[in-house]
Design a protein around this nucleic acid. Structure first.
Lengths: 140, 140
DNA sequence: TTGACATACATAGCACTGCTATGTATATTG
DNA sequence: CAATATACATAGCAGTGCTATGTATGTCAA
């Protein structure tokens, strides 16, 4: 699934910080985790993530250390700092405010759809998300 | 409330398009609607919105026309195009995919918080959002 | 009548961003 | 031994847009 760059830029920081709050991790594993969390919808590239990690480190939100796995592989583990935790809380608050706004207008649209679809008056009482699917081609 | 620019950039297009899907509107009214939808949390500036509108017009997502209100005021109304509707559907899908990812990791974090807060074992069964507030200083 | 404020739109320039393409290194597997 | 997986790095190509500031005009209170 393709995502516009603004959305990736807006979401990568909170996603990375949240994943690191789960527990210390390294680049490759973070990419795998994102894939997992998104049910395979989001595929971050190496080239994208590492500059993000470097930036977060520069900003003081995370701290890096090199470790050697049992296999002998070197990994660069990142740990979220207390500053990073504060930032994540802030980013989360902002995301949720914007998400609520979007949901509000989408809900308003589904109500509009309901009022124009009198033939489906019974369906109007069903969960609005289901309702949207029901109206399919009519409106979003 | 302050929002980082990436988040505004990522959300302004779907918000504008969705508001116009509710019905034709003009700049000033759109700003008021965003304010309303966000319960006053989001305050868009003129200087920000108009370039957005011009861009959306250039991209073919909206179409503009000048109208004169009864008071004699000239207003530039925007109408969403069918192309804009398609784009909104796509943007919505993307937003929801990313939102789901964020929710997934936040949920995972709340489960982590639950497992480390055995003294609050009873609260673990309460809605996770409430739970997060309950843990307040402990974790997000 | 006049100035403050509300309504409504415009945009230059200052300030800046980051992902694609590409590369290195090394463990694992067929 | 070559292909693939694991793991990290970054130059450069390609590009962005909001802040600060300005125009225009209707409304309202003193």
């Amino acid at each position: 699934m393709e995502f516009n760059k603004d959305l990736i830029a807006a979401s990568s920081t909170p996603i990375v910080l949240a994943i690191l709050l789960e527990g210390d991790s390294y680049g490759y594993a973070i990419i795998k985790r994102v894939q997992e969390l998104s049910r395979g919808h989001m595929e971050w590239t190496d080239g994208m993530l590492y500059p993000v990690l470097h930036r977060l480190e520069r900003l003081g939100y995370i701290k890096a250390r090199w470790e050697e796995a049992e296999s002998g592989r070197r990994r660069k583990y990142y740990r979220i700092t207390s500053q990073g935790k504060a930032q994540l809380a802030e980013e989360r608050k902002q995301w949720q405010a914007v998400d609520a706004t979007l949901r509000g207008v989408w809900k308003s649209l589904s109500l509009l759809a309901a009022s124009t679809a009198s033939l489906a008056a019974t369906a109007a009482h069903i969960d609005s998300r289901t309702h949207l699917h029901y109206c399919g081609g009519n409106i979003i």
